[in-house]
Design a protein around this nucleic acid. Structure first.
Length: 319
DNA sequence: AACGTGAGCAACCGCATCAGA
DNA sequence: TTCTGATGCGGTTGCTCACGT
């Protein structure tokens, strides 16, 4: 039952990508645009399976990807979205336009989970100490109400996610994290990177507001045709705006698939202006849900009901 | 200097779902 | 409607590097 894995074929290379392979792949995608991954190995001569090519592109070579250096704002956003959405990393990543689901997932597993656990333990110790000294209002009425609100919101989201709105074309989940106008920040070159290697004509600085790929610290501007079919095109037009509208339900092709905020027919607004000066780290314009999640508390982006969402996040991971 | 260990992250794997024939 | 190929997603693995002994 089921098809054999595409990577079972003999002669298919596995393991880390070499800088040369990266260049071949980027070059191909620059020319043909992402998609039709099945054809990539054959057309490029890469000894990789289509899946591997797609993964390499979406997680590493795609323009506009920011790596590492998660801000506090991003931390909190991830924690809260995780509490609401569970391990729907693609959906979560779609709220962080320059992050990949893999990156978010790794960051959660390696940093945030521990951080949350630590906070949780500290809170428990604190509440235990408080309980022993005070006739504690362990969970005040307002807090219980908030918990109810959270539960309702989560249920609503879950329901919404299970509705097949059939709105978004395939591949839109990834489009939710479509390249933004913010130029890709060169990551620190690694031993595997192709630092210093340039393709002819690629060395030019990317035009303003244009996507670009980064290969080993080299910024490679993306040509217009590189936009995936069906994806919101943030590379075309001078004032392109990523707009997500969700009408009552966050569309999802299934309850497993990520809810792509970019799918048509959504009411939730996720506006990402290409030329916005606030496109910097952690300053993406807020959608309704983000505003709710990140409700300002005293000027700084202090999250509401933090302990409750913390609980939810921990609960999602069986803590 | 050599070795052990743990963290971080890139990549793989299996499964689910979609789209087209 | 069913089948099949292509693609997307989440869980997991395994490699690399930093750090401690």
């Amino acid at each position: 039952m089921g098809r054999p894995p595409c990577c079972d074929k003999e002669g298919v290379k596995k393991g880390p990508w070499t800088p040369e392979e990266d260049l071949v792949l980027v070059s191909y995608v620059q020319e043909h645009g992402p998609g039709n991954w099945r054809a990539v190995p054959g057309n490029t001569g890469l000894l990789r399976c289509s899946k591997s090519c797609r993964l390499r592109w979406t997680n590493y070579l795609r323009p506009g990807i920011r790596r590492g250096g998660f801000s506090d704002h991003e931390d909190r956003l991830i924690v809260h979205l995780q509490a609401l959405l569970g391990n729907r990393w693609a959906a979560i990543a779609s709220y962080l336009p320059d992050r990949t689901d893999n990156d978010v997932k790794n960051y959660w597993n390696t940093h945030l989970k521990k951080k949350l656990l630590l906070q949780h333990q500290q809170r428990q110790r604190a509440s235990t100490a408080a309980a022993s000294s005070l006739p504690s209002p362990s969970k005040g009425q307002w807090e219980l109400k908030l918990q109810t609100d959270i539960d309702l919101a989560r249920r609503a989201l879950r329901d919404a996610l299970s509705v097949d709105a059939a709105a978004g074309p395939p591949g839109m989940a990834a489009a939710g994290s479509a390249p933004t106008a913010a130029p890709a920040q060169p990551y620190a070159p690694t031993a595997r990177s192709v630092d210093g290697m340039l393709l002819d004509g690629w060395a030019a600085a990317p035009a303003a507001g244009r996507s670009c790929a980064v290969v080993g610290g080299t910024v490679i501007p993306a040509p217009a045709p590189a936009t995936p079919p069906g994806a919101t095109d943030s590379t075309s037009g001078s004032s392109s705006v990523l707009t997500t509208e969700c009408s009552g339900s966050i569309s999802s092709a299934s309850n497993k698939r990520a809810a792509p905020p970019v799918a048509a027919g959504h009411r939730l607004l996720l506006v990402h202006e290409e030329n916005s000066t606030s496109a910097g780290q952690g300053e993406v314009p807020l959608s309704a849900i983000e505003s709710w999640l990140l409700e300002d508390a005293g000027g700084e982006q202090k999250l509401p009901h933090e302990s409750l969402l913390l609980d939810a996040a921990l609960h999602n991971f069986g803590f």
